[in-house]
Design a protein around this nucleic acid. Structure first.
Lengths: 266, 266
DNA sequence: AAACGATGTTTCACAGAATAAAACATTGCG
DNA sequence: CGCAATGTTTTATTCTGTGAAACATCGTTT
């Protein structure tokens, strides 16, 4: 436990804890909140007043019960869904890159295409398909296939109804085999592909889940196949799954536990 | 200036002001924020640290610039879009009810139906169609028609392609006349109807706009036609427009100005 | 290349603000 | 009708938030 400098200002931290508690369970009263947070009633009362004045908390005047206020919604909308994902993923991606020294990709689905939200460049120089802001196919690439595997059936049907381009000789374009692959990905909870989108490249992808538990993005470790031995395969898979779990936890209502203290001390 | 009890706790209020500033303009540095908010650099630095630890603020590690963090998105999503609107509207609806003594309705569009988000009962007892949680038509009722008027053309076409029920002898079901009415509503920026959904009732509706400026809801004053003279017509229209503007302002990025201090001292 | 200027980070001492405890008010329930 | 639980207000004390200023780091200019 290295006591790193603590600039935290207690009053603000407590106010934020209050907001989290109200997000976790709305319609709470002063006493209930005070008890569950280990604060005194008067403190909670003052905090709520402050938050309410700015619309971050809303009081039902009849029942004197509090919930999150409209300003939280306005600011959240401003950030956008991708924004939340992106910022939650950022430090985790940095960490994953440092651990693996490979390229890291954060990919979401956009209709029948994949979309690269962010990347981290590994230490080894290799040109891959993935590039932030770029649209790609859904039927090839580690992250893309994983997204397709966890998409609604109607999306899968629509995606497979399109012409399926072969990006390399190894790209799977046979629809029956593709459906089998998707089934396997769902069963495994991850996806590993080799040479299917970029010649000479591998990709190890894990699913990121939103607050409601549905898969909303994939994070993947990608690099040159020549460095991809059995040992790395295991290590990268473990790292990718952990990273995905960490991001998913951040995006859940309960938020990250006390364990996830990532400081990339490169 | 009646100095009402000030329970506001300064540190928290400043932190919230910081969040608002970052929502208004992301990617700001410490100095810029300190200057625009009239705080010292060290204070802003500490506030940002506290906010960052909880994910309410996100720092670009390279450029040392801050934006809203992912937690804001998670909490905002939890509230939902209707939640933000509902909580922003609540005190305004109370105020509008107190001013007019009539029924107040907050209505949104849900596909090709209207949906009553919330109501306030006036002092005079009158049974109206509107009831919280209820779906209604789009082609009749003050608020519903206004929502239709400001909907995308494809929605209007789809709504008018349906069979149009006549709820009273005064309900307009002629499609050409309806389109003329919608045109008028758009031009006026409000809508007043009589007897078209509830026999013997009037409705004065004004548009509520979201952060992006599009019309997302309507607020309306409704009551018995027998009390609806010219003087009240003017007064209700003014009150409804003001209420709609107030709610819209709350939902905008900049938030409510210092003017809007509503305390319903009934 | 050296010096400057701007920015982010850290330190520190003090004022005043946040806090806990307890009294008070209000509401609902038995 | 009284009891119990909750929200609100007050107050005294302490500790924390705060501003000023020093320091570090970076990019730019001369």
């Amino acid at each position: 436990m290295t006591e790193q400098k603590d600039y935290k200002i207690a009053a603000v931290d407590r106010a934020l804890a209050l907001l989290e508690a109200l997000a976790d369970r709305p319609e709470q009263g002063v006493t209930s909140l005070a008890k569950s947070l280990g604060m005194t009633k008067s403190l909670v009362f003052r905090l709520l007043h402050t938050l309410e004045e700015r619309g971050f908390v809303s009081r039902d005047p009849e029942r004197a019960e509090y919930s999150l206020g409209y300003r939280v919604g306005v600011l959240g909308e401003r950030l956008g869904k991708d924004g939340a994902l992106l910022y939650a993923a950022r430090p985790v991606m940095d960490d994953l890159r440092d651990r693996t020294s490979e390229n890291i990709n954060l990919v979401v689905r956009e209709g029948l295409k994949s979309y690269v939200l962010a990347t981290r460049a590994g230490r080894h120089s290799i040109r891959l398909f993935a590039q932030a802001g770029r649209n790609g196919p859904l039927h090839a690439g580690g992250g893309s296939l994983l997204l397709l595997a966890f998409a609604e059936p109607s999306v899968v049907d629509a995606a497979l109804a399109q012409p399926l381009e072969a990006f390399t000789p190894h790209t799977v374009t046979d629809r029956t085999r593709l459906r089998q692959m998707l089934e396997r990905i769902r069963a495994n909870g991850y996806n590993i592909v080799v040479n299917d989108l970029d010649e000479g490249a591998f990709s190890v992808a894990a699913p990121i889940r939103g607050a409601d538990g549905s898969v909303i993005a994939s994070i993947s470790v990608a690099g040159a196949v020549v460095r991809f031995d059995e040992e790395r395969r295991e290590a990268y898979l473990k790292a990718a799954l952990e990273a995905a779990a960490e991001i998913s936890e951040r995006l859940s209502i309960h938020g990250p536990g006390e364990s996830g203290r990532m400081k990339s001390t490169a």
